[in-house]
Every structure is written in C-alpha cells, then in structure tokens.
Amino acid sequence: MTTSPARPVDVLAVGDASVDYFVRVPHIAGADDKAIGRLAGVHGGGMSANLAAAAGFAGARAALATAVGSDEPGRQALDRLARHGVDVSPSITVPGGHTWFCVIQLDATGEKSLVGAVTEVKIPEVGQISDDLLRTARVVAPLADDLGWATDLAARARAGGAKVAVDLEPDAVAGRWDQVRALARHSDLVFCNQGAVQVLADGDPVRCAELLVSAGATAVVTTGGRDGASCYSRTESWSARGPEIEVVDTTGAGDALAGAFTGYWILGRSLADSLRAGVATASLCVGHLGSRAYLDAGTGVETFARKVTLDPAPRLQGNP
C-alpha cells in the first residue's frame, strides 16, 4: 500500500455512526401489526462508519468524521471503530447530546426492517468540516442523506485535490434529479442500491449509470442484493456475483461493498478488482449478525474475492 505523506488518509468518511439494536422476529411487522421477538445483539452501525471500516478491511487507511453525543452509545460507537483500526480523531463529541440509534427487525431469512431514531446528534454541521481536514484524504466519502450537505463537501473536497465517493439512497434522491446531477458532477464513484436505481431509472441499472456518468461521475456501481453488483464507466463495464452463503443479516452490506470498493480503488486497483473486493466484503458481511462483525471473522478480503464470479456487463451507450 502506498500513501502520500501530504495525504495520510486514503478514505475519509464524513457522516454518521450509530448503535444498532437487533431483534429477531417471527415476521417483519408492518403497519398496525406487532412482532414480538428477542434481542439478538447490540452492534456498531451507521452508513459512514460501516464504509470507513470496510475501506480499512480492504487495506486502505480509513478515518471517520462524525458527531456523537457524550453518552454511552456515542462512546461505544467510536471505541468499536477505533478497535477496527479506523481513525476517529476527526469526530466531534457533543456535550449533553444523544447519539442516534437504530432498531432492526430480522426475520428467519436474514432480511431486515430498520427504524432509525434520529436525535439532535447525527452528522457534523458542514462548517465543522474544515478544508484542512478534507485535504488530508485521497478520497472523501460524504453521507448523501442530505444532497445539499453532501454536494458542499464534495465540491470542497474536489477543489482541494481529493477524489469523492457517494452512496445514493432512494429516499434522498426521489424527486431531486437536479441535486443528484450536481452531486454527481463532483463525484468520482457513485454507488446506487436497487431502490435508488428504481427511483432514478425505473430499475434499469445501465440507464442509471448512463445518467450519472453523463452528469460527471467517473464510475457508477449498482447493487442487486443476492444478484451481486455491476460497475460502469465510459470505457468498461463489469458484473460480479458472490459465492453462495447462508444469509444471517443483510444490514450494512451495501456500505461494506462501497467501502471495500473505494478502499481498493484508491490503492490503485482496477475497477474489476475493486468490484470483486466490494462484492466479497458484502458477502462476508451478510454471513454475520451486525454490519461489522465480519471484521472479526479472520477472513481476508483477497482470499474471499477469489470466490467472486466476474463477467463483462452491458456497455454504456455511446461509449467505446
């Protein structure tokens, strides 16, 4: 691994860290329904925290800039990340604040329903993230729940010479194509799950990638759950599928894929190899309870990546 002395961090995630409470239920409770289950465990969570941890798992030097409360969940959130090698020194502790948390229902198949309890403390204010901090990183990955907030950080990161990676969620992008396009213009890597692809391109991953690349993104990764993921750029397209694995918990799989892909890519690996690493890490993730429990399993990303099937994917229209 090579890093520039001027940029000691390979991947800087800017966003959230939480504590996740997992409850095993006989079925996922819907509206006006009740599912009585059992507490299965309490684990670290948060999309940005998960991404940073996965980037570190892929061999990158990872850091997280988040905001937590001065409560026990906040201390646990940062301590767990630090134990996994993530530099949490850029994070902010808000005196008297309450750290946000999630309650996750898990059914017998490992599928989930997540309820997030956002408190007054979730992410740093945009003004609390300095340009000096952004210049320490080779890639900045801002949480894209608030597209305006993410675009501000992405533009500043790019202006300071960093690459940018963003992960789009369906609720954040629905009805906001102009804002999505503005964010893509400042982004190198854009990740979209099935929901985001549905919102942006009626479920067509190739069309979704075409729209985002045309807007300025260098490469777009679309994820398909059990069907794996695909990566598209102007010059190449790949599809990857992980090995068969018993699904325990799908929480954080997309974050794991995005983080490992980004970490591999910024270390100079090809898009194809980065996709392999991302899919391998997501596969490892779903085999354990908790979004980062795979970090303690003792399986290296490169070893597991060899089990990932890689094939050419449809090329973007109008590109060589």
Rank of each mutant, 00 (worst) to 15 (best):
P8F: 08
D10E: 02
V14Q: 00
V19W: 14
A31F: 01
D33T: 12
A52I: 07
G56W: 14
G56S: 11
F57N: 04
F57S: 01
G69W: 12
P73S: 06
G74P: 03
S89P: 06
P90E: 11
S91T: 05
T93S: 14
Q105A: 04
S113Y: 07
A117D: 04
K122C: 09
P124D: 04
G127W: 08
I129M: 03
S130I: 01
L133C: 07
P142I: 09
A144D: 04
A144R: 07
T151Q: 03
A155E: 13
V164N: 03
V173K: 10
W177I: 02
D178K: 01
A182L: 08
D188I: 00
F191A: 14
P205F: 13
E210Y: 14
L212Q: 04
G216T: 10
T218R: 01
D227G: 13
A229D: 11
C231Q: 05
Y232V: 08
W238Q: 01
P243L: 05
E244G: 09
I245K: 14
G252C: 07
G252K: 11
G254V: 09
F261V: 10
G263C: 15
I266N: 12
L271Y: 08
A272M: 07
A272W: 12
A272P: 06
D273L: 01
L275M: 04
L284D: 11
C285L: 09
C285I: 12
V286S: 01
H288G: 09
L289R: 06
A293S: 08
A297C: 13
T303I: 12
K307C: 04
G318N: 10
